[in-house]
Simulated scan of single mutants.
Amino acid sequence: MIRMFAFLAAIFVSIVAVTSATAIASDGGPISFRIDADRGNAGEVKATFSKRDRKHNEWSTGIPVNQLEGFSVASLRSSSSQPVRFAVVRDAGRLDCAGTGSRSVASGGCTFAASAALSDFLASRGVRRPNEDESFSMMALNVRRDLVEALHAARYPAPTPEDLVGLTALDVNTAYISGLSRVGYRPPNLEALLQFKALNVTPDYIEGFVRHGYGNMNPDELVQLKALDISADYVASFQRVGYRNLTADQLVQLKALGVTADYAQAVQRGSAQLPSPDKLVELRAIGFQPR
């Protein structure tokens, strides 16, 4: 239950971002933009792309200035209205915008053209060709060819355009996929890969368990451990006091009830034998506190 809640929460965040982006391109309506050059991190501007039809939808993002082709922050500093033109060009398509701006703020309208080259490339990798809305979502989230290549090289099932948007929203990239392969893990499907990334199951996290003798855990066990924030250090603390072969299920039960290695040692005092993991869980569940 805890694992599923954490996973769904992370996916919900990504779906909100993806849905907002998709809504802008739907129904064939005009796309408007607003740029605030005084907001955003260093080297970025705050950009909002909006579409008005039956309801108002927005895609807002901090975007690096160097990704706005033809845009000049300096020209926007004028106190009088100046023409503004720029393009956002990504693997999935091109957004061409024009308007006016002054005093660090610009606004206007945009047109979007999906990339036929990317559509052909996806088809060559067994991926369904995206429709216009999906292409816009892929452009907004910046779905890249190298993600498709990495999935193909790792022999994952062919993704859908929606899969690619979801994976990109959670920042699943080539480095992450190859990093998992490096430590001997390939989640069995794209859903499991999303679970790994949503819970931040990293190659370093996996390697920590491998160093402590847990090199054969299945992906589902790793997801359960990460959902409860069970670290390799937690495992090592139990190993130091004599618990050498705790299973993933036992670790989950112990951590869920807040059982620590110190608690186990305190329970053991006055006894020649370590209490079993099941006994520790039982004692903790009834609120037993050793003196």
Rank of each mutant, 00 (worst) to 15 (best):
V201F: 04
N218L: 11
A42T: 14
A23T: 08
V281S: 06
Q224M: 11
L246Y: 08
Q82F: 02
G258S: 10
L147C: 03
S75A: 13
D229V: 08
V88S: 02
V148L: 09
F33Q: 02
E282W: 08
G166K: 15
A261F: 08
D262S: 07
M138H: 13
Y185W: 07
E132D: 12
S50C: 00
S26G: 10
S81R: 13
L170K: 06
F209Q: 13
G184M: 09
E69S: 12
V148H: 01
V223P: 04
Q273W: 06
L190I: 15
R3S: 13
A23L: 09
E132P: 04
D204W: 05
M1C: 05
P130W: 13
K197C: 06
A114G: 12
I2M: 11
R34V: 13
T160E: 03
I11L: 14
D91Q: 08
V252F: 00
D171M: 05
R90H: 08
F121S: 12
A17T: 05
A198T: 05
S271C: 05
G29W: 02
A37S: 11
A285I: 00
K197H: 05
S79W: 12
P290K: 06
Q67K: 10
D204Y: 08
T174S: 06
K197G: 04
Q239L: 02
V223S: 07
R186F: 10
S231E: 03
L257E: 08
V172P: 01
F7R: 14
V84D: 03
V148R: 00
I35V: 15
M139Y: 06
D38P: 03
D53I: 12
I31Y: 01
R240T: 05
E69I: 05
V223N: 01
I11C: 11
P130T: 00
Y156M: 05
L254H: 07
G93R: 03
E162K: 06
G213Y: 10
Q67L: 11
S80E: 14
S115K: 09
S26C: 07
L122R: 02
G43A: 07
R39L: 07
F86T: 06
E132V: 15
A248Y: 00
F5M: 06
D120F: 01
S119N: 09
V73F: 09
R54M: 09
D229M: 05
G258R: 09
G29F: 08
F112Y: 14
V223I: 15
S78A: 12
Q268I: 11
L251I: 06
A47Y: 03
A117I: 10
G166D: 01
N189S: 04
E207H: 15
V252G: 02
E221Y: 00
P30R: 06
G270K: 05
R244E: 03
G108M: 01
H152T: 12
L95E: 02
Q250K: 00
Q67P: 03
D120S: 14
L151K: 03
A158Y: 14
I24W: 10
D171P: 02
A21F: 11
R284T: 00
D262R: 04
P83I: 15
D27N: 15
G62T: 12
P188L: 02
P130I: 00
A6Q: 11
R128S: 12
F71A: 10
A21R: 14
T160N: 07
L274Q: 11
A264E: 15
G208V: 05
R103Y: 06
A47W: 00
G43R: 00
